[in-house]
Amino acid sequence: MKEETVIKVEGLTKVFGDFIAVNNINFHVRKGEIFGFLGANGAGKTTAMKMLIGISAPSSGSANVAGFDVYTQTESIKKSIGYMSQKFALYDDLTVKENIRFFGGIYGLSKNNISLKSNLLIEELGLEKVVHSLVGSLPLGWKQKIAFSVSLLHDPKIVFLDEPTGGVDPITRRQFWEMIYKAANNGTTIFVTTHYMDEAEYCDRVSIMVDGTIEALDTPKNLKAHFGSDSMNDVFLKLART
């Protein structure tokens, strides 16, 4: 069985002035994989992610995302991916329904398709009672679950999640991860950053960035074995505390 590669990164580098934010990183991500992208604050994760989603041009190296080149085909990349972060997810002063309609429209879905998907999403998340509530009035955990579903509206090949569960309560955090598993099981590739090290264990493979370079990349199991640690937290501390 040939495994389809949906993200191919080779020698990717980003320089700001004399500061090398991302230094020659290399990795491949397979279709349907949950890929954890870890690193300390300031290690270069966000910069790397910005290049992959087509909003920041690399200084050198190459990357192909969902079959498109990060230098020349950024608009095609944007149509093929979903994105959500802790800071940006949905518009607080639009209702749940309005947000769905807005993002559906942005992603170029037809009116019929938006209403179909919108009903499906509302039913799946049990949102019947809050469809006409402003998103700003909902608990953070709900917002994040809705935002994740919205990022999947246009059936993207890859979803980028930048610390999607920060501050979310432990039960909702797990429900969120069940949604991630489900999407991955349906063939969507998940690229996720997190500061919760137990969540790193939920990933198929994990990369750990330190000062702009990828210092480790493997399954959580292999990483723990390699570093003689019993948790990903311990692996992270060993690698990142220099």
């Binding site: 300390a40 802790q86 501050g167 500061h195 992270f236 501390l237």
Partner: peptide, 12 residues
Amino acid sequence: EPTTGVDPVSRK
């Protein structure tokens, strides 16, 4: 919440 959004090393 002094450590929210802070990586595990800095939190420690």
